[in-house]
Design a protein around this nucleic acid. Structure first.
Lengths: 246, 246
DNA sequence: GCTGGGAGAGGCTTA
DNA sequence: TAAGCCTTTCCCAGC
């Protein structure tokens, strides 16, 4: 395909912010937070209306090279067509040099729809906050998703001895990071309210190291058995697996 | 475009393991680790030779729906063409129902090349490990990427007073999570070696809250200003921004 | 080869 | 804009 003609089609697509697909033999170079080179080969480049730029090989879900929120330019060199994505902060550039173009086409994709995802963590939180007695008798929710100086807590509650309790909900197996997160929350809460606090982690599972760390921090873990339903998650049961250290 | 003809082209592409691009009005449904629905709209679906299946809207880098390593099937229904990706373990299904197909094309992308990446975190580590004196006089590397019971530390070193030091390198702005991570490492090291330990965070930047937490934990932060060179990364300078508490 | 586990990057959301 | 954090993740190490 003629490179001059390809350039025209590409530029029109960029101006109209259409989905652009370019297939051909190209060499790709990236400079920015890292640097990379991709030798010549046949690939598809997808450019989207919001400036997403992706180089796709015929394998893997993810593009081999990419840039988001970029400004895209097209330039004709002596022996190749240069398709380039630039970003200012941080300074990054992704250049594709096409030595031959097999295919260019742009699509006007009218699509108002957003994905509706079910069984998310937010849904779980809402369900749980409705009835914390599930976890422990006398546990009363104070505020859901209370915003503190650092981070956002899932649920804040009060137990029947008047202690303040932060509850962190995870929909997947909890790792070390989750325990550290809960620990930070608990410490904040302790300072803020100036009294003893507890931290409860609710998750379908936990890694062994995470459980050990949780012990050391004096936190509590409850196994939360839920089912991903449609349109809303359903909490199946709660199992007290490990209580506070001593 | 005729749905029957589209089906033929799609099936040929799947058998030949070519890169397949289908554009049209479709409804998408996912069931698996989570569940989602995407109402009717105009999108591009990319199917790759390795079974990667991606639904792209004209925005964002990542597909709105996807599945990797799937088996792809195509079926003609009464009013639509069904393009489906299935996986057995874990059991997942992604269905796209095309009510109209604007475009179908498959590409035979011959591409032997792999990406050559420079300036990765590993290279940074190697450079740093070669010369830790950069950070502080008398700092000697012991082991790089020492595998501990929990997590992997970037660099372990010894300072001129014989204290063991763990150095954590980050390529982007460090947040609360990085500080918690380093704190865990430091505590492990302390237990393991049974002596005083230090923790040093090297990153191009740090959030204010993270810096505060770092203080509380008695950790140290150094601003690392690195330049991505080619073919190897070069450390431009190191700025002692904040030292240990006191 | 499978799986457990840690680390990380894109994109969302709130302040 | 900045910061935190969630995820249909990804990769490595160990079995």
């Amino acid at each position: 395909m003629d490179l001059v003609k390809a350039k025209k089609e590409i530029e029109k697509a960029i101006i109209d912010k259409e989905l652009l697909s370019v297939v051909g033999e190209c060499y790709v170079e990236y400079q920015g937070r890292a640097a990379s080179k991709l030798g010549r080969g046949s690939r598809m480049i997808l450019v989207k209306g919001d400036g997403s730029f992706a180089v796709h090989q015929n394998k893997y879900l993810r593009p081999v090279n990419y840039m988001m929120n970029s400004s895209v330019y097209c330039k004709l060199n002596i022996d190749c067509l240069e398709l380039m994505a630039l970003k200012a902060k941080p300074k990054e550039s992704l250049k594709a040099l096409f030595y031959s173009v097999d295919f260019v086409k742009s699509f006007s994709l009218t699509d108002q729809q957003d994905l509706r995802l079910f069984g998310s963590e937010l849904e779980l939180q809402k369900l749980l906050a409705q009835d914390l007695e599930f976890i422990e008798k006398g546990l009363k929710p104070l505020k859901r998703e209370q915003s503190l100086r650092k981070g956002v807590m899932d649920i804040i509650a009060e137990d029947n001895q008047g202690r303040v309790v932060c509850v962190e909900v995870k929909r997947r197996k909890a790792g070390l990071d989750c325990v550290s997160q809960l620990h930070r929350y608990k410490e904040q809460l302790k300072k803020l309210k100036n009294k003893e606090s507890r931290g409860i982690l609710l998750a379908p599972d936990i890694t062994s190291h995470a459980l050990e760390l949780l012990h050391n921090y004096g936190l509590e873990y409850f196994k939360l058995d839920f089912q991903i339903g449609n349109p809303s998650a359903k909490i199946k049961g709660l199992e007290k697996k490990q209580t506070k250290l001593f």
